[in-house]
Design a protein around this nucleic acid. Sequence first.
DNA 1: CTGACTGCAAAGGCTTTGCAACCAG
DNA 2: CTGGTTGCAAAGCCTTTGCAGTCAG
Lengths: 157, 157
Amino acid sequence: MADNPKSRCPKEFFDFVVRRGLRQTPQRRAIVELVVSTRQHFTAEQLYDWARARDASVSRATVYRTLTLLTESGLIQELELGKEVKYYDPNYVAHPDHNHIICLDCGKIIEFDSPEIDQQAQKIAQDLGFAVKSRRLQILATCDELQKTGHCSRKAD
Amino acid sequence: MADNPKSRCPKEFFDFVVRRGLRQTPQRRAIVELVVSTRQHFTAEQLYDWARARDASVSRATVYRTLTLLTESGLIQELELGKEVKYYDPNYVAHPDHNHIICLDCGKIIEFDSPEIDQQAQKIAQDLGFAVKSRRLQILATCDELQKTGHCSRKAD
DNA sequence: CTGACTGCAAAGGCTTTGCAACCAG
DNA sequence: CTGGTTGCAAAGCCTTTGCAGTCAG
């Protein structure tokens, strides 16, 4: 859905690492590189699998610890999708205000921006006496294509 | 925030119970009555405490089991607020499409409806080839009052 | 060298489940 | 009576943490 180049230099993250007086380790590097090179949403377990494939020495503990750092640095954002586990979204750097459509048919997650909705939300909050810090809109929907053709071309992704 | 009468007869739920061939037990009744008589959001643990106060024989297991039934019956809805635990919202029956503002200052959760946003969301989803089943919009915000006066009158609730 | 980082396994915290007794209909 | 329900305690699951060894800077 998004259209930013597929990989970004993890500079943002290593700035953060330096600022915090942290260190750069092979495990950390493997995990971070994976995260910045995908636009997919992923779970801790998935990231653990990916990382293991690159560097078998990576442990779950390090994945979780790095996930915390990545979230704090703003490189990823936690996603509560109403599914069992937590997902992480690496696309907030490129699209800080994007929203999600979650397909109930195939589980696919589509992202979209909507300045109109942002504006509306902004106005409503203001009227109620609040200053918006962030917002998240999730739309649960069924897929027209699947309903009509019995096949979902998005399912592949 | 909402403005429906403060208590509703759990008829909807007992219809559901009958339809499913379930039974009506004192524990179940206690829990359901608590749920339909509040407009507050609550956690499983809170509900457990409330229920214990009414009927000390209620166990956590029954609370969780009843929570599942209540969710399936549509009387409450799970809420992912980005906090540690899951919350439950009993106000969807009265306001099926309401949204939430979560105050980062005091933690208070304010509900609001917005036909405009619903409509926008509807349109966007349609354009992308989806049929909206439900949506949830959460706005994280800070409270003007607290920022200005250092005191939040909503905190009381 | 020093203290941040790691893996491992144990511990946590919330939720689910197996089981035998119980009781609603 | 029958089988849905319950409480209890054990089990599950995902995530966090204590610890001793390791390694980045």
